[in-house]
Design a protein around this nucleic acid. Structure first.
Length: 168
DNA sequence: CCCTAGCGGTGCT
DNA sequence: AGCACCGCTAGGG
């Protein structure tokens, strides 16, 4: 994996590329264990177009704008089920949300809400695969592996309203 | 608020 | 094969 720093007004994101495409993205605030290591020497050569597309997509997403065309994605770290979940997440536009149950239903697995949550947590490319647009039932915030502060910040910019606590 | 039961997918033994 | 873990949900006290 080759890592590239992406500077943004929100700090430095780190993108990880394989020869297949963009494989990971870490937030500026990511804990050392979750943060990609940009010091490791580059493995493979990465097309400049991929880096440019990623940089633009990240900056757009941070402004609550559609990402436009993404570079090729390497989602080989995911199981079939998880890739199906991630594909659904990519259909959620800025400012819109689904909840875990709704994603499960779309997959034809109405009992799979919990597995959907697990798949969201395993999302290797947060922000661009917008797992922050998945809330819990009743518009409750639910979780976020990148830290709930980031989830709140992104949703707020997109004009989404959520409920901080308590069930209906 | 809490607790419980049930759920599907995943990874580790 | 078994089992513990989960970004969950619905129901009841």
């Amino acid at each position: 994996m080759t890592t590239i720093d992406l500077e943004t007004p929100d700090g430095s994101f780190i993108a990880g590329f394989t020869s297949q495409g963009l494989a990971r993205l870490s937030f500026p605030s990511a804990s050392p264990s979750a943060r990609l290591d940009s010091r490791v020497p580059a493995g493979e050569k990465i097309p400049r177009a991929w880096i440019k597309a990623t940089h633009q997509a990240v900056r757009a997403a941070l402004l609550a704008r559609p990402t436009g065309e993404l570079p090729p994605l390497d989602l080989s770290s995911g199981t079939e089920f998880r890739r199906q979940v991630w594909d659904i997440l990519r259909t959620i536009p800025p400012g819109r949300t689904l909840n875990y149950l709704e994603v499960a239903v779309r997959l034809g697995k109405p009992g799979g809400a919990r597995a959907v949550g697990q798949a969201c947590g395993a999302n290797p490319i947060p922000l661009l695969i917008p797992c922050h647009r998945v809330l819990a039932a009743g518009s409750r915030l639910g979780g976020f592996s990148g830290g709930l502060d980031w989830k709140r910040r992104l949703l707020e910019r997109e004009g989404v309203v959520w409920r901080e606590d308590a069930r209906p």
